[in-house]
Design a protein around this nucleic acid. Structure first.
Length: 603
RNA sequence: GGGGACGUAGCUCAAUUGGUUAGAGUACCGGACUGUCGAUCCGGUGGUUGCGGGUUCGAUUCCCGUCGUCCUCGCCA
């Protein structure tokens, strides 16, 4: 039999029920709450598994001397071991909100394992303290059930992913954390090398190159729950270090990757969170997604698709419409079902302000009635013209029609965001509903206005749809890459591609992007070299674990699902990191800071 | 780097558009209480109003700077 010290628990705080009636048990945990009634005291004892009520009755036969007084003295967050007898609570005293609510532990003795100072905030299920304080005392915040639940479900999800991939013959491979700076992309976190004075490692922005090298190595299927580091400014959905499900497969085409990931995702969502994600995930061509949803990450929880009205607008008397078309633009509209009476004149003004902020010149609108349309564009759409518009939009009385006329880019941005906003107002974006999709064939390059040159849209290793393409300079904006995104509820959760696996093509992409031969050699030489020795066709994807868990649990931001997150200024309030280091350490690393040491306060 | 919001008791907030001794709930401390479950009742301790400067007879309140937190744009292949 396993050895157990007298103070060690026989059960957790979440498992005792009527089945344990009359048993003598030992529980360990934190005091959550105490309710005194003179000679009777109730204490809620908490551990990860639940809460059990302790009843300390001064008149209990066989109670160890001093137990009652000790219990009276103890308070919130003290850590104790209690020995007692399980007893039913009796009629009218059952707490149905708790698994252990039908019993209580009649305390016979107590051992104080650790006394706690009054905590800086109360450890309650509901977070009442502000985030700054909660991050500073993260270990206290993590005692709260919602946070523990997030960590447990996250762990279950990740385990399900591992099990699935392992079964699909993927190999979990660890790639370096100390690696090489990549010239493009996000800013790197750098680590100075002691033995190579003046030289620096970079923390990986992703294991991208290494996983491709795993393919060249013949591992065939690689995966890793990988930590990635990017030194960019943060957001609610962004941390300087974050976790990806990173995978790569050899001898595959898009559908092979998508099929595996889709099956993995459905499995892990069910195992981790009990969420049923409906399949199959629709697969959109990039331009199809843009046309229908105005963005490359469609929220499929509701319809309200963008509908092209350019042809109708062409012959319109409404100068805003006709004018936009004449200027080479387009006109599109959305139909918000039954929304006519939900938006007052003021409400529509707010929507107008919203799209104006996004670059649109205005918002044309019409409420559909039995007789036709009324609203800002009604006088241009009287009689048959109005009927034609209604028919074109597939609208019925009570619907609200919203239109934007401008250059395509502006229309898609404004109407795409407006669709989300109106959908939100109408309650069509239920956080408990989950709809996934794929978006394929992204443009290979995008124009960088500031740097005045083309840059890759996904990553420089994504293959073009046309393997034999000779000149990237011709019709550049229409060159498509074999890149794809994984999207759920309007959030981009993953991104990947079929890669280039030939030296020559990879070199030409780099060349087109203005990365010199020397630069290529210095930064990607080992990848280009690797391809010389036989690189298999391959492709993969990386999914953002933090975002997936956040969305699945309906939390506000990814900080809620990360054990020890950093602030918006990338600062760890608990550890006070980053911090200063000694001059000896600096000297050893051959580095000097350009920051003036803080002046000592004036005497 | 830009914009916005916030910073008052351990915690969450209030304080009359600049005016008496900065209040409440909760936590904490003391007391009462044998069926509570965010127990209840009575009493009490607790404040550099983030920090620095300015305007004013007088600043939690107005102004400038600074620090911190959050949101957001840029940025994030």
């Amino acid at each position: 039999m396993k050895q157990r010290s007298p103070w060690q628990r026989t059960h957790t705080c979440g498992e005792l029920t009527l089945a344990n009636k009359d048993q003598e048990v030992v529980l360990n945990g934190w005091i959550e709450n105490k309710r005194e009634h003179g000679k009777l005291v109730f204490i809620d004892l908490r551990d990860r598994y639940g809460i059990t009520q302790l009843a300390v009755d001064a008149d209990t036969a066989g109670m160890a001397a001093g137990t009652f007084d000790t219990m009276l003295r103890l308070g919130a967050e003290d850590v104790i071991s209690v020995r007692g007898r399980v007893r039913p609570r009796g009629e009218g005293n059952v707490n149905k909100n708790r698994v252990t609510g039908e019993i209580e532990l009649c305390v016979l003795s107590v051992t104080v394992l650790s006394e706690a100072e009054t905590p800086p905030f109360e450890v309650l299920d509901k977070a009442e303290a502000n985030e700054e304080l909660r991050m500073q005392y993260r270990y206290l915040d993590l005692r709260r059930r919602p946070l523990q639940e997030a960590l447990m479900k996250r762990a279950r999800f990740v385990t399900a992913v591992r099990n699935f991939l392992q079964q699909q013959r993927f190999i979990d491979v660890e790639t370096p954390i100390l690696t090489k700076s990549t010239p493009e992309g996000a800013r790197d976190y750098l680590v100075p090398s002691r033995v190579h004075p003046g030289k620096f490692f970079a923390l990986p922005q992703s294991p991208q190159i290494f996983k491709q090298l795993c393919m060249v190595a013949g591992l065939d299927r690689y995966y890793q729950i990988a930590r990635c580091f990017r030194d960019e400014d943060l957001r609610a959905d962004r941390q300087p270090e974050f976790t990806q499900i990173d995978l790569e497969m050899s001898f595959v085409e898009e559908h092979d990757v998508l099929d595996v990931v889709e099956a993995m995702y459905v499995h892990a969502m069910k195992e981790g969170f009990g969420i049923d994600v409906p399949q199959p995930f629709p697969r959109f061509d990039f331009f199809e997604a843009m046309d229908k949803y105005g963005c490359d990450k469609p929220d499929l929880r509701f319809g309200m698709l963008l509908q092209d009205c350019t042809e109708l607008a062409k012959k319109s008397d409404f100068k805003v419409f006709a004018g936009a078309v004449a200027a080479g633009g387009i006109v599109k509209g959305i139909c918000a079902e039954g929304a006519a009476e939900k938006f007052s004149r003021k409400g529509i003004d707010e929507l107008t302000a919203f799209v104006t902020q996004l670059g649109a010149k205005g918002l044309a609108w019409a409420k559909v009635t039995a007789a036709g349309v009324e609203g800002s564009i009604a006088k241009f759409y009287e009689g048959d013209k109005g009927k034609e518009l209604i028919a074109h939009m597939g609208a019925k009385p009570g619907d609200l029609l919203l239109f934007v006329a401008d250059q395509k880019r502006v229309v898609h941005k404004a109407l795409g965001d407006l669709r989300l906003k109106v959908g939100g107002i109408l309650g069509l974006r239920d956080p408990k509903v989950f709809r996934c999709c794929w978006v394929l064939n992204f443009p290979m390059f995008e124009w960088n206005e500031d740097k005045h040159r083309w840059q890759f849209a996904h990553n420089p290793f994504s293959a073009p749809v046309d393997w034999d393409i000779q000149d990237f300079g011709v019709d550049t904006e229409n060159i498509r890459s074999r890149a794809y995104d994984f999207v759920m509820n309007g959030w981009e959760l993953g991104s990947g591609s079929i890669r280039i696996h030939r030296t020559e093509l990879q070199a030409r992409v780099f060349e087109f992007l203005g990365i010199s031969k020397e630069h290529q050699r210095a930064n990607f030489g080992f990848l280009l070299d690797a391809y010389k020795y036989g690189g298999p066709p391959h492709g993969g994807i990386a999914l953002g674990v933090d975002r997936i868990v956040t969305l699945a649990l309906g939390r506000e931001g990814i900080r809620d699902v990360i054990a020890f997150p950093k602030t918006a200024m990338a600062f760890d309030l608990m550890a006070a990191a980053p911090g200063e280091v000694s001059s000896e350490q600096m000297k050893e690393l051959s580095i000097r800071t350009a920051v003036e040491p803080p002046k000592p306060p004036a005497q």
